[in-house]
């Protein structure tokens, strides 16, 4: 690891100001991706600004049909939260499927979506549940947040404060995990929200995306059979040592049907 400066500030404003004054500084959330990246010398930030001392980034609350999770909430806390389990059990089961217990005790929801790994689980939840990402500067709709491979709508220095999830009528997440890393080879969140059906896929493409044909079909008939014949084109999907694009396209259908089947009936 190259050396760097370290600062742990206690307010969003101070942390953003420090980051804005130093282009080479980096926020440190749970560090589950950043620290391994630094150890491999794949990044060389001038400073790490530790977000763990900022009280405003913590906590889970429910009000007016919306579940809100602070950006620095770790996966284990999301998975164990009585509020999450009661209102969006699919989100709790997604959180407990991330990595392993040690990772879930450190990794955070804000860090996960800011990093936007193509195989991360949370992007499927953010898009599938039509969440809103609240930053220090603005509110960003899920459909506008994930832009591409490790690319989001966040501007340099913009800091995620919390993510709000409108409580769906029902939702389920089905995932084909890489057996070693537990990252999603493909993961699909299917949700019946107050504004209609959403089907969001992670792991398959450059970033999370929706499958409009499946959403339309499920709106007419909410059953696994209704989406049986809908194929997702493999053209733009990921091929790597774990799976080909064609296999991932196939898995999108299988995972979507599993998610629907777990909800239907």
């Amino acid at each position: 690891m190259y050396d760097f400066q370290y600062a742990k500030l206690t307010s969003v404003a101070d942390t953003v100001t420090r980051r804005t004054s130093d282009d080479e500084a980096s926020y440190l959330a749970g560090g589950m991706t950043l620290i391994p990246t630094l150890k491999q010398r794949l990044a060389r930030p001038s400073a790490l600004l530790d977000l763990s001392g900022i009280a405003d980034l913590k906590g889970i609350s429910v009000a007016n049909g919306v579940l809100t999770i602070g950006a620095m909430t770790c996966h284990a806390d999301v998975a164990a939260s009585a509020d999450v389990r009661a209102h969006i059990p699919a989100l709790a089961s997604l959180a407990v499927s991330i990595g392993d217990p040690q990772v879930r005790n450190r990794g955070t929801i804000g860090g996960s979506i800011a990093n936007n790994d193509p195989s991360a689980d949370y992007p499927a939840a953010v898009v599938g549940l039509n969440a809103t990402v609240h930053t220090n500067a603005r509110a960003i709709a899920a459909d506008d947040f994930f832009k591409g491979l490790f690319e989001t709508a966040l501007t340099p220095g913009e800091l995620i404060v919390k993510i709000s999830f409108p409580i769906p009528k029902r939702a389920a997440y089905a995932k084909f995990p890489n057996p070693a890393s537990r990252y999603a080879v493909v993961g699909v969140m299917v949700a019946e929200t107050l504004n209609g059906i959403r089907v969001a896929v992670t792991g398959a493409g450059a970033c999370a995306f929706r499958v409009g044909d499946m959403e339309a079909a499920l709106a007419k008939s909410f059953s696994a059979d209704a989406i049986k014949s809908i194929a997702v084109p493999a053209d733009d999907l990921n091929t790597d040592m774990h799976a080909t694009a064609e296999y991932r396209a196939h898995l999108v259908g299988v995972m979507a049907r599993r998610a629907v089947a777990s909800l239907a009936g």
């Binding site: 370290y6 742990k8 440190l28 560090g31 620290i35 217990p101 005790n105």
Partner: peptide
């Protein structure tokens, strides 16, 4: 439980 190889001492 956490992995102490993936955390800084300062943290």
């Amino acid at each position: 439980p956490v992995k102490s190889c993936t955390m800084l001492a300062v943290q």
